[in-house]
Each structure stands twice: as C-alpha cells, then as structure tokens.
C-alpha cells in the first residue's frame, strides 16, 4: 500500500490544483492500477478547496470507476476536508463521471 503525505506537497492549505494534478498523474494513477491500495494522508492540512480535491481524485474515478474509492483511503482528514471529499465523490457519481 502506498501512502502519500499531502502536507509535504501543499502545506496547511491545499488549494493549488497544479500540485493536485501532479499527485494524481504521477502518484495515484501510476500506482493504483486495478488492485493496489493507496492512502492519502491529510495530517497537518487544515483545509482544502473543492477545486483541489476535484483535481486530485475526479479523474481517478473517471478512469477507474467509482469502485476505486474502495481502494483509496483518506487518512487524518479534518471535518472540512472530509466534507469536501464527500461532495466531490458524490457529484462525480451524479454526473456519471
């Protein structure tokens, strides 16, 4: 299982979509394949924008299907970040990707 520490890349506020894109392309999508599990560790990150979370995971869901969420673990998320992740995963399912 691969673990990615978001704080190391974004600092306390995760808003920069370019960073989200890099994590998605170079780490999540490269590693996750059809079986691998991944941990996105948000410890130290106080908050994030919806745009950041969208850029981080929406295309992973698009490419791998919604069941990929069973292999992505969101660790140490603040309540705010949990809510934003929930919003993004829910509207991704509504839009049928």
């Amino acid at each position: 299982m691969k673990e990615i520490r978001i704080f190391d890349k974004t600092g306390a506020f995760a808003g920069n979509k370019d960073i989200a894109r890099d994590i998605r392309l170079n780490e999540i999508l490269k590693y996750i394949g059809d079986e691998n599990k991944i941990v996105l560790d948000f410890s130290g990150v106080e908050s994030a924008t919806q745009s950041f979370i969208h850029a981080l995971i929406s295309d992973v869901i698009r490419q791998r299907g919604i069941n990929v969420l069973e292999r992505i673990y969101f660790k140490n998320c603040s309540i705010t970040i949990q809510k934003i992740i929930s919003i993004v995963t829910e509207y991704m399912q509504e839009s049928n990707y």
């Binding site: 998605r24 745009s51 969208h54 929406s58 509207y91 839009s95």
Partner: peptide, 19 residues
C-alpha cells in the same frame, strides 16, 4: 456543473464548474 472548459456537465479532470 458548468465550466467553459467542456460542455460535459460535471466538468473535466481539472474543472468542476463549482467554484
């Protein structure tokens, strides 16, 4: 759900049209 980057409702991998 509407963004200038696509006509697809829900946006693209980098834009959701929600900001």
């Amino acid at each position: 759900g509407i963004t200038g980057t696509t006509t697809k409702i829900g946006g693209t991998e980098s834009n959701a049209g929600a900001g």
